[in-house]
């Protein structure tokens, strides 16, 4: 490997190394407890790397005043539009659980794509709205650089369109299965070994891409859909981490699961079609790339896969020790 290529890869690694945390959803959680008919005690219960109270400011419905984390409302109680300033920057979404004294808990989700929640009192059905789940699904895949890199690796291995269709379908079916399994609580994989395994799946594709460049063959090159299915099962558990953090009530799980999965598919298909369109355009424009540029996506898959594998295995070992 030339010095130029090594420098290139180092720069790319430095730029993309933050993607190792791409799985972790920036979801803040707020708890609101009714302490009297007109008074509510609230606090952030779950935060990410930066405390939520530093970057998020709730704007309570008209008629409600906040003083030292106690919200005092008028006769109407806690009703009206709640917004949270700062959503969409450090935190992409916030979940608000309202514990009523004489009614079941209500859950609301506020995200950049759905920046307000309408609180309608204790009788509320507590639905965060289908748009929020769809949005979270798209967000999870768009920010999940590791998932997209795995899909890119598959695109680099697959030979023809029919095989591409089979491979992408196999990946979709597989991750849908484990996403459902994990969301319904049938199985659970701890985050540290899961993230290390997902990184390993990307690293696995690196040598396969090189084999394809050399004109060699292997089981993966002959049957990429089998590999896509097998590793898709792992990635599904990764997708589930995004949905699990919502802490959904049982009644909402089927709808949330469906819409979150559709969101993931929208993001994934947009990525695949984008790559295919660019590939077609380069062909039409008769682009003759230098070999280094031509192979850069393959090197990117292999090196980032190796980097994330090492990084996540270290995290795994630390958590075990």
């Amino acid at each position: 490997m030339s010095a130029g290529l090594r420098s290139w890869l180092l720069v790319v690694l430095a730029l993309l190394s933050s993607g190792a945390a791409a799985h972790e959803m920036s979801m803040a959680e707020m708890e609101v407890r009714q302490i009297s008919p007109r008074e509510f005690l609230w606090q952030w219960t779950v935060s990410g790397n930066r405390p939520a109270n530093e970057v998020l400011t709730p704007v309570w419905p008209d008629g409600c005043q906040d003083e030292d984390n106690i919200v005092r409302c008028g006769d109407a109680g806690l009703q009206g539009v709640l917004t949270i300033k700062g959503i969409g920057k450090v935190y992409s979404a916030a979940m608000i659980r309202v514990y009523w004294r004489d009614a079941p808990m209500s859950v609301y989700t506020i995200a950049a794509g759905q920046p307000r929640a309408r609180l309608s009192g204790p009788s509320d059905g507590a639905s965060p709205g289908p748009g929020a789940y769809l949005y979270l699904g798209i967000e999870h895949i768009m920010l999940g650089v590791d998932h997209l890199l795995f899909v890119l690796g598959l695109l680099l291995i697959v030979g023809d369109r029919w095989m591409l269709l089979k491979t992408i379908t196999a990946f979709t079916v597989a991750h849908s299965i484990t996403l459902a399994v994990a969301t319904f609580g049938i199985a659970h994989v701890p985050a540290a070994p899961l993230n290390a395994s997902i990184a390993l799946s990307i690293l696995f594709l690196g040598p396969e891409i090189v084999r394809r460049w050399r004109g060699e063959t292997s089981f993966t090159i002959r049957h990429p859909w089998v590999v896509a299915f097998a590793f898709g099962l792992l990635h599904g558990f990764g997708f589930a981490s995004g949905l699990a953090q919502l802490g959904l009530p049982d009644s909402q799980i089927p709808l949330a699961l469906l819409l979150f999965n559709i969101g993931v598919e929208i993001g994934q298909l947009a990525f695949v079609f984008g790559i295919l369109l660019l590939e077609r355009s380069f062909r039409l424009l008769e682009c003759h790339w230098p070999r280094l540029v031509e192979r850069l996506p393959g090197y990117l898959v292999g090196t980032l896969g190796a980097f994330w594998t090492i990084q996540r295995v270290v995290i795994l070992l630390r958590s075990v020790a």
């Binding site: 984008g274 369109l277 660019l278 077609r280 355009s281 380069f282 039409l284 424009l285």
Partner: peptide
């Protein structure tokens, strides 16, 4: 880059 490349390429053919 994406919009320009795809559109220009399609127009050429």
């Amino acid at each position: 880059f994406f919009v320009n490349t795809i559109l220009a390429a399609e127009v050429t053919v």
